Simulated assay, not measured.
Amino acid sequence: MATPAQARVDLAAIRHNVSLLKEQAGGAELMGAVKADAYGHGLVPASEAALEGGASRLGTAFVREALALRAAGVTAPILSWLITPDEPLDQALEADVELSAADARLLGEIAEVARRTGRTAKLHLEADTGMSRGGAPLAAWPGLLAKALELRAEGVIDIVGVWSHFACADIPGHPSIALQIEAFETALKLAEQAGAAGSHVIRHLSNSAAAMTLPAARYDLVRPGIAMYGLSPIPELGDFGLRPAMTLVAQVGLVKRVPEGSGVSYAHLYVTDRETTLGLVPLGYADGILRHATGRAEVLAGGRRRRIAGRVCMDQFMIDMGDDPLSAGDEVVLFGPGDGGEPTAQEWADTLGTITHEIVTRIGSRVPRVHEHTSSVTTGTSRRP
C-alpha cells in the first residue's frame, strides 16, 4: 500500500448492483445517481461502471459534477438537479447537460442563457409532491407549466422530463408514499392537459428504495443511488442481493506495549486494565471517521474485531490488541463486504446511529480511491419484495 489508508472500490460490484437494479426496474430506464463523488466511490470510474452495468443516464446534484463527467469523456445523458444562483449554466448547455427547474426565476435564468448561447436547454420540471424540499408545490405547478410552455414555444427550452422525489420510500408502508404517488399523478395529469408531457417526456419518481419495492412508482425511469454501491436502501428487508463496493483499509502506523492503567488518547476516555499492546491506525475525523465512533465502532485487525480504544483524533485512532501480535504496516479493515469477518458499512451506520450514505460519503480526500475489478458476488440475506 503506497498510502497509509485506501478506500478500495470494486467496480465489478457496482456493475453487478446496477444490473440487478435494472432487472428490478421492469423495463424502466435507469439513471445512476453519482452525486457527491459517486457517494464517495470516485465519480468517473463509478459512473463508467454504472453505465457498463446497464444505466442509460447519470444524475448529479451540481452542474460542476456533470461537467467533470463530460471532461472525462462521458457522453451519456446527464441530469443536474440542484441549480443554485451563479451555476455555470453556459457551460452546462454547451456540454449538453440536462437541468432541473422548479420555479419561474430559474426558468428565466436558463432561458436567458439559452438565448445567449444559441443552445436549447433540456429541462426536467420538478414537482413537490410532499417532501417540501425541491420542486414546485402543486399550487404553483400550473404556473410553472405555463412559463415552461411559453419558453418552449420560443424555442429556448425543451421539456424532456417531469419528476419528483420520495420522502419516505425507505419506510415500508409509510402513509406519505401513497399520497406522494397520488400527488405525482396529479402533476402528470396537469402536465398532460397543458401539453407539457408528450411521449418523449420522461416521468421519474423512484429512488433506490422505491425502485426495489414499489413497482407502481417506477414510471419511465428509476434513479437509484445508494443501492448502486451495494448498500441496502431498506436494511430491515435485507441486502436485496446487492454487493458492497467499498472496503476501507489502513496500515498500522505504530505498535507499542503499555502498562496497566495507561490512559489512551484525548481525555483518557479509555484506560488499559492490563499490560497490553496498542496499535495506531492513521485515519481520523479529518478522513471521515466520525468522532463519536470513539469506543463504539469496530475494525478487523490481526484476524479479530477490535473496538476503537479512546477518542478518535483528527488523523488517527488507537486499538487495543491485548497480547495478540501486531506489527507496523499490518492492514486494518474498517469496513467492507463482510466476507473476511470485517464490519460492514451498515454495521458502522447502525452503531453510530446514522445511515450508510453518511459513512461512505464522509471518507475524505486524503484517502485515495483505488478502483479494482475483483468482486465474487454472493447474495447473503437477499429479500426482494
Score class of each variant (00 low, 15 high):
137 P>L: 08
197 A>H: 05
151 L>N: 05
131 M>Y: 08
217 A>P: 12
44 V>G: 04
273 D>M: 01
201 V>W: 04
236 E>W: 04
317 F>N: 00
366 R>A: 10
309 A>S: 09
100 S>Q: 13
255 V>L: 13
211 A>R: 03
122 K>T: 01
239 D>W: 14
21 L>Y: 03
200 H>F: 13
9 V>A: 10
233 P>E: 09
180 Q>W: 03
8 R>Q: 09
140 A>P: 08
370 V>N: 03
344 T>N: 04
365 S>W: 08
33 A>N: 10
310 G>W: 11
138 L>C: 04
229 Y>I: 10
245 A>I: 06
263 G>M: 14
233 P>T: 07
339 D>M: 10
253 G>S: 15
39 Y>R: 13
332 V>N: 05
369 R>G: 04
104 A>G: 02
356 T>C: 07
90 D>A: 15
187 A>V: 06
311 R>P: 09
54 G>N: 03
92 A>F: 01
100 S>K: 03
31 M>W: 09
162 V>F: 01
213 T>K: 06
354 T>P: 12
356 T>M: 01
91 Q>P: 02
299 V>K: 00
305 R>A: 05
52 E>T: 14
110 I>M: 00
296 R>L: 14
301 A>H: 12
369 R>I: 04
105 R>S: 11
210 A>E: 14
344 T>V: 12
330 D>G: 14
255 V>E: 08
108 G>S: 03
22 K>C: 08
50 A>H: 01
130 G>R: 10
281 V>D: 04
134 G>C: 08
108 G>E: 00
60 T>E: 07
55 A>Q: 03
322 G>T: 07
324 D>Y: 14
328 A>G: 15
372 E>N: 12
102 A>K: 04
271 V>K: 12
159 I>L: 00
89 L>Y: 01
321 M>S: 06
228 M>G: 05
147 K>Y: 03
99 L>S: 00
104 A>L: 09
48 E>Y: 06
168 C>I: 09
229 Y>R: 02
117 T>I: 07
289 I>W: 02
78 I>W: 03
213 T>N: 13
300 L>S: 01
116 R>Q: 15
163 W>S: 14
223 R>Q: 11
329 G>V: 07
334 L>P: 00
